[in-house]
Design a protein around this nucleic acid. Sequence first.
RNA 1: CGGGGCGUGGCGCAGACUGGUAGCGCACUUGCUUGGGGUGCAAGGGGUCGCGAGUUCAAAUCUCGCCGUCCCGACCA
Length: 499
Amino acid sequence: MLDETHSSTTPMAAEKQNEKKVTPRSQDFAGWYNDVILRAELADYSPVRGSMVFRPDGFGIWELLRDELDRRIKKTGARNAYFPMFIPQSLLDKEAQHVEGFAPEVAVVTHGGGKLLEEPLIVRPTSETIINYMFAQWIHSHRDLPLMVNQWCNVVRWEMRTRLFLRTLEFLWQEGHTAHATREEAERETLTMLEIYRTFVEEFLAIPLIVGRKSAAERFPGAEETYTIEGLMADGRALQCGTSHFLGQNFAKAFEIRFLDVGNQLQHAWQTSWGVSTRLLGAIIMVHGDDQGLRLPPAVAPTQAVIVPISRKPDEAEKVRAAAGSLHEGLDRAGVRVKIDEREGLTPGFKFNDWEMRGVPIRIEIGPRDVAAGEVVLARRDRLGPEAKQKAPITDVASRVTSLLAEIQKSLFEQALGARNANTREFDDYASFAAQMEGEGGGGMAYIFWCGNPECETTIREQTKATCRAIPLHQNGASGKCIVCAEPATERAYFAKAY
RNA sequence: CGGGGCGUGGCGCAGACUGGUAGCGCACUUGCUUGGGGUGCAAGGGGUCGCGAGUUCAAAUCUCGCCGUCCCGACCA
């Protein structure tokens, strides 16, 4: 008995330490991902299978992201509107490919007010159908075009397997829908929005992207062409971060969206749709996070800087508190999203770790020594160890923090870009490509010649689990042999295992 | 829907094989202590052991049924 107590001391202590930390990223990426989300209080599981709760820190990221993207979308000329969540079954049935694509995963309302409905209502998985139904009422003349609307809403897709942020039954997104008089204008719009997404995600979320068009197999149901922005996560798997679709006249014909052109000829409109979702939060976590927890790009950090006052004795505490208070005021005036950690009974060390886990970009330590010296310690989350800390005169804090935030935003992008490039490789023979894709966490982006034949794509998917993520729009003109069938290929495509 | 795992205080688990007063760590409450990298001590509060039957003097533990959930495949922003 005595022996047991004795020998168990060390392992117990180690376990105790481990409970405080998140699962190491390299050890179990999925476990790490869930840990970070729950511990950083971004989200929680709900009593509804596959549906999640956005907690204030998680929703705060979404709000910042949403507001900025909303501004950028509006600049292109689109305006916000809102359409019903319920779609009559008959509307969904109108576009053949579209129904086929979405029917397996829609939720259907069959009863209302205690009675069986005459016609079942679909809970929108996307709103092409109901929006285009309305477009048909609104569009009669070329003067009604272009018509560009966007809506921020929730959609429901009854997925088999769900993951926080990445795939939930209900998720939040923005979906833009436009109608144009000519094919060229609609195609231009599709690419304009793709570029809006690319710049937004790279600049604001600090996530480097691969941009291109989708293969036929990966195309949106009902679209003529789908364009995508793809991110590469830290575990080597790709994540589709946003799509922009050129719909041609498919929906216009199904919904009879027609207008009289300048020559008094009746024409079908040309259309686009485009969207990004709360999945972007998953991308932020999986691209920037580390073993310590979350790392938020300052642009989307609900709290950009946290002040941790440190004091030993009551008389010191008063001075420190006053100094922290005026720091807070100054930073707030400078437009920094800042808060003071005034929680009692927690040691500074605990608070440091806590805020690091939550991904706050800058921590400001202020204690008696600092107050006496007229300075503070600034610790940046994008670096680890001693080099993360620097001293700053208390009078310069606002300007130093502002410029440091910009620097962190940039450095997170560069770190992510470095990781992405290190995990992106060209392959010219199938064996080494397949070897690279093998195993858990194995992968990364492979840039390979593909003839465009869907059969070769299927072969790759079945043998390596990698799918075509994007075919870049601008290629260097080189041609080669398809990595599967060795037939001539004019384009390289990015293949990766995807979420 | 096919294959597997798991349901015991808020969280993570032990107890089950071999039935007999429900336990540990974290979290929580109060007090003292400590405070520049996850303080220490003490005293507390909190569980009809997923649900329902059955076996038994006695079930968290054995048997049967059901439900939930997670992981792996097919589907996917």
